[in-house]
Design a protein around this nucleic acid. Structure first.
Lengths: 113, 113
DNA sequence: TCACCATATACCGATATCAGAATATTTTCA
DNA sequence: TGAAAATATTCTGATATCGGTATATGGTGA
């Protein structure tokens, strides 16, 4: 058996620094492969392949427009990662710990303005 | 070139589900290799090796006590991961977005009771 | 239809990973 | 001193990954 496939989860997809840069770039909005190539200085096949992995775990979506493809960030796919790490937050910041309590409280009153 | 080494960052170390389970288990406090073997049902060499990776990226520390070793979670090493994911939080939750602002405000007033 | 642009895909070689099994190391206690 | 306990290390084989280069695919406009 080998290492867990990069296309298994967001955790594995996001482990690669280059893919994180791609997501950072897409945080500004849709982008085309060519734009990403130029902005990040990666090679075109590199960008395409990394986007392929991100797509496999649903971290990005594509919109076809003629001969170019607009890639878009799909934030919610990062939530599992966020949730997991957040459970350790209290470990390094007591203040955040108290904020978590506040958050939990706000969540339960969701929908009651 | 191959995949980024698991011992490169917290991102790569944490990509493996088994290592995440180990960290979860250590969230309750110090634990011995044997205890982790029993609690998680992993093999002893598996646990030792995974702990080795986690140690390499400083996610855990060890305390030697006779012939056993007490492993302890080092939460702050997860902060880079937390910080990165958190920058995408607004993507899926406007409410949390506003909480972030509150947090930022609290941070700046740190030390002024 | 043909040349061209944008992107995807295939192939390559090098490498680190992972589980498993066996074994080494160190400490304790009788 | 010697056996047993706790943990680390080594070796193996299978495999997916990654960058690079080359090439395929498909849409576009003259």
């Amino acid at each position: 058996m080998a290492r867990t496939a990069t296309t298994t989860d967001a955790f594995n997809a996001v482990a690669e620094a280059g893919r994180r840069q791609l997501l950072d770039a897409l945080a500004d909005g849709e982008a085309t492969v060519g734009e990403l190539v130029e902005r990040l200085g990666f090679t075109q096949p590199q960008v395409s392949k990394h986007l392929g992995v991100l797509r496999a775990v649903d971290l990005v979506s594509v919109r076809v427009d003629g001969r170019r493809r607009w890639y878009r960030l799909n934030g919610p796919a990062l939530q599992p990662v966020h949730d997991w790490v957040r459970s350790f937050e209290h470990t390094w910041n007591a203040r955040l710990d108290r904020l978590d309590d506040l958050l939990a409280e706000l969540q339960t009153t969701e929908g009651t303005p």
